[in-house]
C-alpha cells in the first residue's frame, strides 16, 4: 500500500490543456509545442526578425471562444506561417495549413510538358528514376521525388547504361523531398572518397537554444558503380527538404556542377505532434547544416544560375537542359 501511494504520488502525466475543443486551449497547445520543439528560432530571429513571444500576443487577441473550427484553423495557420517554413504544417480533416512561399514566390524554371519532349516515349524506368541517352550522347536522368525508392541495384544499372555518355544530367527539379537515405544513396555515386558534407544536431530541452553538439555527417562512396565523368545537377526552387540535402552533399563532389535556380531549402528534419482537438502538426525539429556549418534552411545557390527563357518555352526548349548539354560538351 505504501509503495502504491508513493507511485501514485509521483505520477508523470501529459500536458493538461483543458477542454480539447476550446479554441484558446488549442491555441496555447500549438504555440507551446512549437515554442518547445521548433529548431530555427535563433536563426530566424536574425534572418527574418521572428519573435515567437510577440507572435503569441499577436494571435492570442484573435482567438475567441465563439469561433468555429474553420476560423480557428485559419488563425492557427496564419500563426504558423510566421515561421516561414515549408516543413511546418497543420493538418485538419478539411485542410492543410502551409507556407509554400519558398517556391510559389519564384519562377518554376521547370515545364513538365517540355521536359516530357526530352524524355520522349522510349525512356527507361528504374524504380523512381526515368532516364535516357539524348541525341548528343548526354545521359539524362529525372528523379521526381525522393519518396520514390531507389535501390543500389537500380543505380548501378542506370549508371552502367549511361556509361558510354560524355556526361550526365541529373534533373531533380520539382523534387520536393522524401527519404534522406535515398538522397544519400544517390549522392554516394558521385564521390570516390569519404567527404564531410554537413552537420546535424537536435534539441536537448525545451529552451530555444538547447541544442546538442553538432554531429558530422559524412558521405561515404558507394560500393557499386560510381560516376567518374562530369555530371550536372539541375535545380529549381521546388528542390526542398531531402532534395536540398542531396544538393548540399553533391555540391561537395568533385565532378558535379549545380545548374539552375537556388533550391527551396527546408533543412530542418521534421517531427510530428498534435493538439487536443486532434489536428496534427509538423515542424522542423533537427537543424542540418552544410560542411561550413552554415544554415541551408532558405536554400542553396547553384554553381551556375540559369533561368528558363520565355523564348525557349515558345520553341519547346528547356533552357536549363540545353545549357547543361552545352556545358557537358565543353
Amino acid at each position: 500500500m505504501v509503495i502504491m501511494l508513493l507511485s501514485f504520488s509521483s505520477c508523470i502525466k501529459g500536458e493538461d490543456w483543458g477542454n480539447g475543443n476550446a479554441p484558446m486551449d488549442n491555441f496555447k497547445a500549438l504555440w507551446t509545442i512549437i515554442d518547445e520543439h521548433y529548431c530555427f528560432f535563433d536563426y530566424k530571429a536574425k534572418a527574418i526578425g521572428l519573435d515567437w513571444n510577440n507572435v503569441y500576443k499577436k494571435y492570442e487577441a484573435r482567438i475567441s471562444e465563439k469561433m468555429d473550427n474553420k476560423q480557428l484553423f485559419e488563425v492557427l495557420g496564419e500563426m504558423l506561417s510566421e515561421l516561414q517554413d515549408g516543413h511546418v504544417n497543420l493538418y485538419a480533416s478539411f485542410d492543410i495549413a502551409r507556407n509554400w512561399n519558398w517556391r510559389e514566390d519564384f519562377p518554376s524554371n521547370f515545364n513538365d510538358s517540355i521536359q516530357q519532349l526530352y524524355l520522349g516515349k522510349d525512356y527507361k524506368i528504374a524504380s523512381g528514376l526515368k532516364y535516357k541517352i539524348l541525341p548528343d550522347n548526354i545521359g539524362y536522368i529525372y528523379y521526381a521525388s525522393f519518396s520514390n525508392g531507389i535501390g543500389d541495384g537500380n543505380l548501378s544499372e542506370v549508371l552502367n547504361n549511361l556509361s558510354t555518355c560524355d556526361g550526365i544530367i541529373l534533373d531533380v527539379r520539382n523534387n520536393t523531398g522524401g527519404n534522406l537515405s535515398y538522397a544519400e544513396r544517390l549522392a554516394a555515386r558521385f564521390t570516390n572518397e569519404k567527404i564531410l558534407v554537413g552537420y546535424i544536431c537536435h534539441k536537448t530541452g525545451t529552451g530555444h537554444n538547447d541544442f546538442s553538439k553538432p554531429e558530422e555527417v559524412w558521405l561515404e562512396p558507394s560500393d557499386g558503380v560510381r560516376w567518374q565523368k562530369n555530371a550536372v545537377v539541375l535545380t529549381n526552387r521546388s528542390c526542398y527538404s531531402a532534395t536540398n540535402d542531396f544538393i548540399k552533399s553533391v555540391k561537395r563532389c568533385p565532378n558535379v556542377t549545380i545548374i539552375g535556380d537556388r533550391t527551396g531549402g527546408g533543412s530542418g528534419l521534421p517531427f510530428s505532434s498534435e493538439i487536443p482537438n486532434g489536428w496534427s502538426i509538423r515542424f522542423s525539429a533537427c537543424p542540418m547544416y552544410d560542411a561550413d556549418m552554415q544554415q541551408t534552411e532558405f536554400g542553396i545557390d547553384p554553381d551556375i544560375k540559369v533561368s528558363q527563357k520565355k523564348e525557349d518555352i515558345l520553341k519547346d526548349k528547356d533552357t536549363l537542359i540545353e545549357f547543361a548539354r552545352e556545358f557537358l560538351k565543353k
Binding site: 529548431c39 546535424i200 537536435h202 534539441k203 538547447d210 554531429e215 517531427f271
Partner: peptide, 8 residues
Amino acid sequence: QYGESYYE
C-alpha cells in the same frame, strides 16, 4: 534525447 531522431 529530447528532439533526437532515430535517423541521427
